[in-house]
Design a protein around this nucleic acid. Structure first.
Length: 267
DNA sequence: CCGAAACCCTGTGAGC
DNA sequence: TGCTCACAGGGTTTCG
């Protein structure tokens, strides 16, 4: 599922080929995925000026609109210069000057929102997002942690506290930093918070460098898989030996998410 | 304030 | 082998 490193990879993979192109037309076959209702008419004729990312949201800057894409679990944006047929589960098709851009989504959880550039900050997809992990310094992070008595896993998944982390990178970060997922956020010492934030940034960077994690159906804008899933130490490895102590990895439901961790190595 | 659960979806894989 | 069914999960909403 596209978390920060995956969306960053999608953005980078699409930027060169989309920038400067004009959207000639757009066909929506699953209207619930888009807003507003006249999405297709509004986007027609718009030129693509730039691509950015905020948290897990991809922003495609058009002439006077921004197309915001939230991929949720199984959304994909695929650009084909010489399309023969749409990718499976395609629900939206953008015809460009050169080639086509497809939005495919197996579970139909994703959303595409067209929003006026001038009022971008007001868009519900962005409005309540917390700081980007890379722009977060330890003093701010520690202060945020201290204000919350929720479990650290719940805290890290909360996009209003820090944006971009999902289930994979939270589990991986907590394991590498040696922090138990059920620890109250405000119980972490300054040193633990320092280690955790450093670990989060390291893991996100490594994942971006490897093109993200391809679990489920994640691929970049050219249909290429990522390779960071090969580096996962705990995610998807419940019951298997802990990479550090060899005891079986434990599993629990925290914040409604499956959580894999080592009860011996994570304190 | 906090947490738990339902909801939106459908492919996958475990179990019978 | 073939079927059924719980499970997976990001974000939102509702309820306790």
């Amino acid at each position: 599922m596209p978390e920060l490193p995956e969306v960053e990879t999608i953005k980078n993979s699409l930027k060169t080929c989309l920038k400067g192109q004009t959207i000639k037309s757009c066909e929506v076959s699953l209207p619930k995925l888009v807003s507003p209702d006249d999405f297709a008419e509004k986007i027609k004729g718009q030129s693509i000026n730039d691509l950015k990312r905020r948290g897990k949201v991809l922003l495609i800057f058009l002439r006077n609109w921004v197309l915001l894409v939230h991929f949720k679990l199984t959304g994909q944006l695929i650009y084909l210069e010489n399309p023969l047929s749409p990718p499976p589960y395609t629900h939206i098709e953008f015809s460009l000057e050169k080639g086509k851009l497809y939005y495919a989504d197996l579970r139909q959880f994703g959303r595409l929102v067209l929003w006026p550039v001038k009022e971008l900050d007001e868009c519900p997809l962005l409005k309540k997002l917390g700081p980007e992990p890379f722009e977060l310094n330890i003093d701010t992070f520690f202060r945020l942690l201290n204000k919350s008595s929720r479990k650290i896993k719940t805290f890290l998944l909360d996009q209003e506290k820090i944006t971009g982390l999902g289930n994979i990178y939270v589990d991986e970060s907590l394991f590498r930093a040696g922090v138990h997922p059920e620890r109250p956020a405000n119980s972490l010492s300054f040193e633990e918070a320092q280690r955790l934030l450093k670990t989060i940034k390291e893991i996100l960077n490594e994942a971006i460098n490897l093109g993200g994690s391809s679990v489920r159906n994640y691929v970049d804008g050219h249909g290429e898989s990522g390779r960071f899933q090969e580096k996962h130490l705990v995610y998807g490895r419940r019951g298997k030996p802990c990479p550090k102590c060899q005891k079986p990895l434990a599993y629990a439901h925290i914040a409604g998410r499956g959580t894999t961790f080592c009860p011996y190595c994570q304190k």
